[in-house]
Write a protein that binds this DNA or RNA. Structure first.
Lengths: 215, 215
DNA sequence: CCTTTCAGTGAACGTCTGTTCACTCAAGTG
DNA sequence: CACTTGAGTGAACAGACGTTCACTGAAAGG
């Protein structure tokens, strides 16, 4: 078994789950120094304190491990977004209300965000696919939310989609920066706030006043 | 030697350069299926058709190879940007004029862009650093260009920097998408055009009309 | 023409890789 | 209490890994 006290009152399923968690955490930690495709099953097993073969009792391959990590990363992220959107109407300012929540979530789940940021572009194809799928889902949800609140009535459905994508892409970029350089969180956040305001305040007046012409 | 005709009229330096190129190309191709940190010196050597040891005649490590690839990727990119900015005043519409040039450059240098997109977040620390440095330089140049053309007179120097960063981040994201899904180039480009217009047309009216308040 | 230079060779090293297999032995079960 | 289940073991495998070393042989240079 991995480690920890051999608690007699721990069920078999509980012990298995504990090892599974240890494997997920070990992979997360090891991949942080490079990336998923560059680490080995044996490194993970050694870090967990388990023989290499034991890995297969939990995951069929490192790629499936990766998909599990994508899953749990986004499960947590979606809970946070639910919270953001549920409380959105309470905020006098949507941006000032939401950005700090995102920042806090990144801070508390640094390794997951770092994993997503890396594997989004460099992971095994299936992992990349899964991440893009999750991000696309979130973009769609933001679209319906924008449409529902009627914040952009002059926009077509298609253009609301484009606006959502613009926002999500920007937040993804911001999250990448928070992960890459945690010490600059305050400045990154302050700048992102201004930029998001540039983007939103501008964009929301766009269609009605400037249907075609040059920038 | 790698391959190709053993042209007698080829100087020693030329043959060396030819092998060096072959190594760069092989690494680019191999990393495309995963990433730099996940490929091996021996794979590269085998693909080039050279014994593993020969690699060291050209690069001290895969990481240094990566730095060379960053270098040549951005050298080409900067030439393109020079072209974009030099011809910018000629365009009736800056966006319609510039975006297709970027798209064409991505199309013609797909493997380099794919490399940058991946290694930007997943590469060895030094490679990541080099890429971020290059992107920061480009952002700075865009800032001075925006200031020079007086397109955003109501902006402070600091805010022009933030606007440039917003634009560059967006174009980076667009380039990533063009690389990831070349078949959708036309749609990606059309959407990016609209989004960039949302961003710019809006942002350029921002400071003067909406100094604080909520979006 | 003789000497130097150096890109590429080929063998050898110790280490790490993924995967197989038969196994143990405690928890779960009827 | 006897029986099954299954998480974790440990040996073994064939192959790939980075790096070393002494080497070859043709081009470059005096």
């Amino acid at each position: 078994m991995a480690d920890g006290p051999a608690d007699a009152s721990e069920s078999r399923a509980e012990r298995k789950e504990r090892t599974r968690r240890a494997i997920l955490d070990a992979a997360l930690a090891l991949a942080a120094d490079s990336n998923l495709a560059a680490i080995s099953l044996r490194q993970v097993a050694k870090q967990v304190g388990v023989v290499p073969t034991a890995f297969y009792r939990h995951f069929g391959s490192l790629e499936l491990l990766g998909l599990a990590l994508v899953d749990e990363s986004f499960r947590s992220l979606r809970l946070m977004l639910l919270d953001v959107w549920r409380h959105a109407p309470e905020y006098r300012d949507f941006i000032d209300g939401s950005l700090p929540i995102v920042a806090q979530h990144v801070r508390e789940n640094r390794s997951h965000y770092a994993f997503i940021a890396r594997e989004r572009t460099a992971g095994p194809p299936r992992v990349r696919e899964a991440i893009h799928h999750e991000i696309a889902l979130i973009t769609r949800e933001l679209s319906t939310d924008i449409a529902r609140t009627g914040a952009a009535e002059q926009y077509s459905t298609h253009d609301i989609g484009l606006l959502s994508d613009l926002i999500v892409s920007f937040v993804v970029t911001m999250a990448e920066r928070l992960v890459e350089d945690p010490d600059s969180e305050e400045r990154t956040l302050a700048e992102a706030r201004t930029q998001l305001r540039m983007l939103l305040v501008g964009a929301l007046n766009w269609r009605s006043r400037e249907p075609g012409g040059g920038a």
